[in-house]
Design a protein around this nucleic acid. Structure first.
Length: 501
DNA sequence: ATGTGC
């Protein structure tokens, strides 16, 4: 919204393959675009202008626009921005370490065919993992209290052994995380403890204890929990990779999407304000005139503070996701005694990570983009996924399903990243105006997908998102990743507070 | 995304 169009509408993209293109700019190397022609037609001018602004911003060496790209804060949602020298809070986003996680259960699909069973599961899950803005813990409070002391520990340590034990999270789930913890700017834990004390003295952090009590909650917007049936692809590679991932064909799994809740929002918005104020006070030119693209050069105290805040928020998001998965498993066990479950993976799409690219360390900002390291990548050496690549969790929509993918060698051309889902095609306001409630709810009924919402939010309806098949086709055709399994929705947990009145 | 809009 704040992005200004300095130039006339961006020049047209030039196709370099069936699902790849470049977006030329006047003064820098071209931006890489992933998407078939049909997908490239979905990018509006402001989204493309944000990509160009990001590419021209100081210290940026690479930008990739993914098929799910749409308007974001400074940079498009659905892009990768790389810089060895500068950190950009906007292109991480307001929901620090917003992520996906997938819990594989040993429940055969036919056990949840019965609608009463699914209703009981919805109820048991909603009791434990609330949705909606500001909603903290409900019954969770009794079994998993998060007091100030534990809160301070978990934002500094992430999913450490001690934190997991106190929260009732299986300790070995930490091995199934893209990152189970985040360190401070100097790669120590102490830096985070010190930064936290500074933050706690500030007025906008006076609600710290309240924010900690939100642990184990989904929030609103596009966040969700979804019960799935796993359909592993019937080729040899899919079957073999699925086994390494711990996916079980024909069984139930649970997919979650949420982030760092109010705590991460406080940290991110605090950083936007601080940096925007400094740019203004010191009269530093804004990249493309866009205050959403304020940055900090690495090595400055401003960059140190941002990296520490990002890590604190990321640690909260990590503990939040793992606790949600533990609570979902507990809910299944209440309804279906004896159920066991294991975490397939937990992976973010809103984070900046230090990675080695072209033999040098650089900061990869993934803004609505998912890390995609293929088999043999150096960073997977010590993980269960060294020989396959790690799981990539891609939410589509309840009607058309979601996908588990694995990176191919071609992911390197996209800075080892893929999209993070389908991507919006209708803005929220537009969707609420043009979509019909009865049609949406009837469609869920036709597909026998239950929900905790009496009326499914219109701005979250499948029709508000891009064609998932075309998005997946883009990723596959560009050679970035291959499909391992499809997830078919059986019920959905969403924030119903806006639609359900 | 967000005790939801500067």
């Amino acid at each position: 919204m704040h992005t200004t169009l300095h130039k006339p509408a961006p020049t047209r993209m030039i196709a370099t393959g069936e699902a790849t293109a470049i977006l030329p700019t006047e003064t820098t190397p071209p931006i890489k675009v992933i998407g078939t022609e049909a997908i490239r037609d979905t990018f509006d001018d402001v989204c493309l202008q944000q990509a160009i602004n990001s590419r021209l911003a100081p210290g940026v060496t690479d930008v990739v626009l993914n098929p799910d790209a749409h308007l974001g804060y400074g940079a498009p949602v659905g892009c990768v921005m790389v810089s060895p020298t500068h950190i950009y809070p906007g292109p991480v986003g307001v929901d620090i370490k917003c992520s996906m996680s997938l819990l594989q259960l040993d429940v055969p699909a036919d056990v949840i065919e019965d609608r009463q069973t699914r209703r009981a599961l919805i109820s048991a899950i909603c009791q434990r993992t609330p949705t909606g803005a500001g909603k903290g813990q409900r019954s969770v409070k009794k079994s998993r209290p998060v007091n100030r002391t534990l809160g301070k520990q978990l934002v500094v340590e992430g999913a450490s052994e001690s934190v997991c034990q106190q929260l009732g999270i299986p300790v070995d789930w930490a091995d199934r995380c893209e990152d189970s913890f985040h360190l401070g700017h100097d790669e120590t834990r102490d830096a985070l403890g010190n930064r936290l004390e500074v933050l706690l003295a500030q007025r906008h952090m006076s609600n710290f204890s309240d924010k900690m009590s939100q642990l184990g909650s989904y929030g609103g917007g596009n966040h969700f929990g979804e019960c799935e049936v796993v359909h592993v692809g019937d080729d040899d590679r899919s079957r073999s990779v699925a086994e390494t991932f711990g996916l079980r064909d024909g069984k139930v799994a649970f997919l979650s999407h949420c982030g760092s809740r109010g705590f991460g929002h406080n940290l991110a918005s605090g950083q936007f304000k601080t940096l925007q104020h400094k740019f203004s006070k010191w009269d530093i030119p804004l990249p493309a005139g866009d205050r959403q693209l304020v940055y900090a050069p690495l090595g400055t105290s401003e960059a140190d503070d941002y990296l520490d805040d990002m890590a604190l928020g990321a640690n909260f998001a990590t503990a939040n996701h793992l606790l949600i998965n533990a609570l979902v498993l507990e809910a299944f066990q209440e309804v279906l005694p004896g159920t066991t479950g294991s975490l397939v993976y937990f992976i973010s799409h809103n984070i900046a990570r230090k990675e080695i690219m072209d033999n040098r360390p650089t900061w990869v900002h993934r803004k609505g983009a998912t890390r995609a390291f293929p088999a043999g990548h150096y960073a997977l050496r010590e993980t269960p996924f060294a020989d396959t690549g790690h799981p990539i969790l891609l939410p589509g929509n309840p009607r058309d399903g979601s996908a588990v993918m694995v990176a191919d060698a071609g992911a390197e051309q996209a800075c080892f990243s893929v999209n993070h889902g389908a991507g919006r095609t209708l803005g929220r306001r537009h969707a609420n105006r043009v979509l019909d409630q009865a049609t949406i709810d009837k469609e869920f009924e036709q597909h026998d997908i239950l929900s905790n919402c009496r009326f499914y939010p219109k701005d979250e309806a499948p029709a508000a998102y891009k064609d998932f098949e075309e998005v997946l086709r883009s990723v596959k055709t560009a050679g970035l990743a291959s499909e391992v399994a499809r997830l078919k929705a059986r019920f959905v947990i969403k924030d119903a507070s806006k639609a359900d009145d």
